[in-house]
């Protein structure tokens, strides 16, 4: 029906706008999520504690067991004045995935490159001119931009970060190790934004399964009442 086509058309227009890249200069990679894996979450939490916690807090996870086990505790969380960091202090990251996306984070954290014009000495393809320094220089190494900035802005969203950045000085980790490392952090942040995820996955099938069984019985009961009414209607 024409009506359905309309709906699909309208929906795709809407989807295109809401899921657009925002300010990113490159196409985002797809973050391989695996939130059910507690070991990986714990690994990510530990990386967070080692690297990010110096600047970022994780306020809403005070009583979360994975978070506590990794040593992310209130006493260690930094508190910044609104005016520090040139008015853009490192924000709390408990809810970051709700605002950005996992894909955004996964790409952002790997897309730093050397840029001497910036106060931090680095710039980022996904979040141009961010004031966050690259926390991974020792692990990832340093990357150089292969094309000019102007060309990059013209071809916004056409390339992937790995096509325009080249590792010029390797760090302690191999490329694969580093991807895995970032993936762990992103997984933890996805979990942090909504820890109910694991519980929802666990209870969901039971609740819906129960309702489906209930549906079977009430539908049978209803049909047995209404068969009668239908028979009489057609006899008349």
């Amino acid at each position: 029906m024409a009506f359905n086509h309309w709906m699909i058309l309208l929906f795709s227009v809407w989807a295109n706008i809401t899921w657009a890249h925002g300010e990113s200069l490159v196409e985002l990679d797809h973050a391989p999520l695996n939130i059910e894996n507690r070991d990986q979450l714990l690994r990510g939490a530990k990386h967070f504690q080692q690297v990010c916690l110096t600047c970022h807090s994780m306020h809403y996870l005070r009583y979360d067991d994975i978070t506590q086990e990794a040593g992310i505790i209130k006493e260690r969380m930094p508190v910044w004045d609104d005016l520090s960091w040139g008015g853009r202090p490192p924000p709390d990251l408990s809810l970051i995935v709700k605002r950005r996306t996992a894909d955004w984070l996964y790409t952002f954290l790997r897309a730093y490159y050397i840029d001497d014009t910036r106060p931090t000495g680095v710039n980022n393809l996904v979040w141009p001119n961010t004031s966050m320094p690259n926390p991974f220089i020792s692990r990832q190494g340093t990357q150089q931009l292969l094309i000019s900035e102007a060309h990059l802005h013209d071809s916004k969203g056409k390339y992937r970060w790995s096509q325009v950045l080249k590792l010029d000085r390797p760090g302690q980790m191999s490329g694969e190790e580093f991807d895995q490392y970032i993936d762990d952090i992103v997984n933890y942040l996805v979990y942090a934004a909504d820890p109910s995820y694991l519980k929802r996955e666990a209870y969901g099938p039971w609740v819906i399964g129960y309702l489906l069984i209930l549906l079977f019985f009430v539908a049978r009961l209803s049909m047995s009442y209404w068969d009668d009414v239908k028979r009489k209607h057609h006899m008349k």
Binding site: R200, E201, G204, V207, I208, L211, L212, L214, L215, V218
Partner: peptide
């Protein structure tokens, strides 16, 4: 019941 199935599918 049909409504609740859809409703809880969204919630979960």
């Amino acid at each position: 019941v049909v409504f609740l199935i859809i409703f809880f599918a969204v919630i979960f």
